[in-house]
Design a protein around this nucleic acid. Structure first.
Length: 635
RNA sequence: GCCAACGUGGCUCAAUGGUAGAGCAGCUGAUUUGUAAUCAGCAGGUUGGGGGUUCGAUUCCCUUCGUUGGCUCCA
């Protein structure tokens, strides 16, 4: 017998008898064998003790491999479930997958897991890890599996079993006294799990459906070494310092007040000024790129929302109506019907298209109280909304322009890392499938033209059309949607929109909803976190703080201030009779980008000592040079 | 909305059944200072709201509001 094993680098190894994946790793190096978690044989992920009895392509998975962490974390989830079952035998297990950062396991338990419970579970996990219990795979028939889980009294596993397709191989993994239904692969034994931490417990609905029972979820993370775990936990701590709610308070940017109501934002002077700069930039760009700015009211008659369909599809998201002259008025959750009414205010010709109506439209939505989160999810917010109404043959170029525009705007704020999703037709949808196809293709083409990485969210589109979403991550790695470009095959029909074509016939236009920043509130939140409060200079309320060393230079300080203002630089003098250290400290903490320190020397030579926030003292330069420095940074 | 934790002066936190305390911020005064905290004094809280247990509640119980972490939803 002679088995040829092809490795990822193309090398071929020959073995004279059947071997396991671990043998292959060993034949390469002892180190690799130690680090190996599992393997890939002919494209299939398998356990290390998987036997190979034929020529095959084999790759070894370590923690550093793309597939590594998932397997590692999944095995840790099993370890945690074992510990939980031992400590709380009445608990029923459900599912426990690896996630982006770590893993969780959902349990059906009367009692929630307290922090003390988590410590107990961790301790038990440590003991079980020390026992180096092997994860043993066993393939079973459907009946066997049913028997086993019936005996174990695990109803959720039985429910899952029933939903696995007939032709799929069923496998069980057992370590010590714990058996779980699982596709695998898993680590060789529990001793491989060296460092772990249970991070939090929370509630989670079975299958994510609020109609189902509330389960108890435990989240955790694990690494092959304590050092990696420590680095991860440290990063988590560092990330918390970037939290927009914390920085928003420290820099006095915004607040949310109990007496006003949850999810309703107060923009304080500094935050409002930044918002003003964001909005003016936004308006100027829209005017330049062929948009028309509009303003629309905050409320509209119930009849309007019936026509739009919001009262049948989105009622829970809307505030209750208020009555006037016997007619119900609703606060708007969206701007679209208003923009449509502007379109419909006169007869439109194909020559009017594309029509692009843009508005910083403030809307109110009744978000679930438990979902509110700082500026990221609020109940009243301003969308940087626009509706593009065009003919079918303008579609593709409009989508392309949109994506260009969006990337340019996001870039202006310093955003370069984001996730792009293309969402396609869901099961329940309105509109002609051919139109869906064309629209989806035009979205795809636009993304590909930019050479951007993107993920497809199959069936994730709105019922009324496909969409592109751009998401930005917050300090804790949670994604928040900013840009959204959505087709709408629904509203043009509902509102019977039309235009007269060159053939003198009425046609139905295409409509695209889009928001670039998403909402000003959320965008501001992500902006704060992305820059850790160190805003791009053009957005800073104060760009330069002038710090005279003593009263003796206060006259010169005034001159510097005048010179800065003349160049459109926002500056302020700290005139207090405090030590320079103190003034520097306060300016640093206020994250002001430039500090100009002035003493007798500077006054004599018409210069300033420049200090850059986070970078420190840059030395003395002439006032004109210093001003140029700031102006260059202000772009 | 659901599961859980939390709620003490503007901010960060202390006080586990015996009339609430610190630092920072604020105010007043002194200090005129060379790149991240000058010194002193003063003032500020019916401990989120309501109810209960108790001789006595920040502390224990109930309820309500809010916040936080998740579930869900979405800008």
């Amino acid at each position: 017998m002679n088995i040829k094993i092809k490795l990822p680098d193309g090398a071929i190894k020959e073995f004279s008898e059947k071997i396991t994946v671990l043998d292959v790793a060993k034949s390469i190096s002892e180190g690799l064998a130690n680090a190996s978690l599992a393997g890939i044989v002919d494209g299939k992920k398998v356990d290390l003790d998987h036997e190979i009895d034929h020529d095959a392509e084999v790759a070894i998975i370590t923690f550093k491999s793309e597939e590594g962490p998932d397997i590692y974390w999944h095995s840790t989830a099993h370890l945690m479930a074992q510990a939980v079952k031992q400590l709380f035998p009445k608990v029923k297990v459900t599912i426990g997958p690896a996630i982006e950062n770590g893993f969780y396991y959902d349990f059906d338990s009367e009692k929630a897991f307290s922090e003390e419970d988590l410590v107990l579970i961790e301790e038990r996990m440590k003991e079980l890890s020390n026992e180096k219990l092997p994860y043993v795979r066993k393939e079973v028939s459907r009946n066997e599996a049913m028997e086993i889980f019936k005996k174990m009294d695990e109803p959720y596993k039985l429910e899952i079993l029933n939903e696995i397709p007939e032709d799929e191989i069923l496998s069980l993994y057992t370590q010590g006294d714990f058996t779980d239904l699982c596709r695998g692969p898993h680590l060789a034994h529990t001793g491989k799990i060296k460092a772990f931490k249970l991070l939090r417990s929370s509630g989670a609905y079975w299958r994510g459906d609020e109609k189902n029972k509330m389960l108890k979820r435990i989240y955790g993370i694990s690494f092959p070494s304590p050092k990696e775990l420590k680095v991860y936990l440290n990063n988590l701590e560092e990330a918390k310092k970037r939290d927009h709610r914390k920085i928003g308070k420290e820099l006095d940017l915004f607040s949310i007040n109990d007496d006003i109501g949850p999810g309703l934002v107060l923009w304080h002077p500094k935050g409002a000024l930044i918002r003003h700069f964001i909005e003016s930039y936004w308006k100027n760009q829209h005017l330049e790129y062929g948009y028309d700015l509009v303003y629309t009211p905050h409320i509209g008659k119930g009849h309007l929302w019936e026509t739009s369909g919001h009262l049948s599809f989105y009622k829970e998201g809307m505030y209750n109506p208020m009555e006037m002259d016997g007619i119900d008025y609703y606060v708007k959750p969206m701007n679209c019907p208003f923009h449509i009414m502007i379109y419909k205010s006169s007869k439109r010709s194909y020559r009017d298209l594309p029509m692009k109506l843009a508005e910083l439209g403030t809307v109110y939505r009744n978000e679930l109280s438990g979902a509110l989160h700082g500026l990221m999810r609020v109940r009243g917010f301003t969308q940087d909304d626009a509706h593009i109404i065009c003919t079918p043959d303008q579609l593709e170029s409009e989508v392309e322009k949109l994506l260009d525009f969006s990337l340019m705007v996001l870039g202006k704020f310093g955003f370069e890392n984001f996730e792009i999703y293309l969402s396609t037709m869901p099961e329940k949808s309105v509109g002609d499938p051919e139109e869906w196809k064309a629209a989806t293709e035009s979205l795809r083409k636009a993304i590909e033209k930019h050479n951007l990485d993107y993920k497809i969210d199959e069936g994730g589109g709105a019922f009324y059309g496909p969409k592109i979403d751009i998401k930005i991550k917050d300090a804790l790695n949670r994604s928040w949607q900013c840009t959204t470009i959505q087709f709408d095959f629904n509203l043009p029909t509902r509102f019977e929109m039309d235009y007269i074509g060159s053939d003198n016939q009425a046609h139905r236009p295409y409509m695209i909803h889009r928001a670039l920043l998403g909402s000003i509130e959320r965008f501001f939140g992500t902006l704060i976190e992305y820059h850790a409060g160190n805003f791009p200079v053009w957005l800073c309320p104060i760009q330069v703080k002038i710090l005279p060393i003593s009263d003796a230079t206060s006259e010169y300080a005034d001159e510097v201030l005048t010179a800065l203002k003349a160049k459109g630089i926002r500056a302020e003098i700290d005139e207090r009779s405090e030590k320079i250290n103190f003034k520097v400290r306060e300016a640093e903490m206020a994250k002001i980008p430039y500090m100009f320190v002035l003493g007798g020397k500077e006054a004599e030579t018409n210069s300033v000592s420049v200090r850059r926030h986070t970078k420190g003292n840059l030395g003395v330069v002439s006032l004109t040079e210093a001003i140029d420095l700031v102006l260059n940074d202000k772009e």
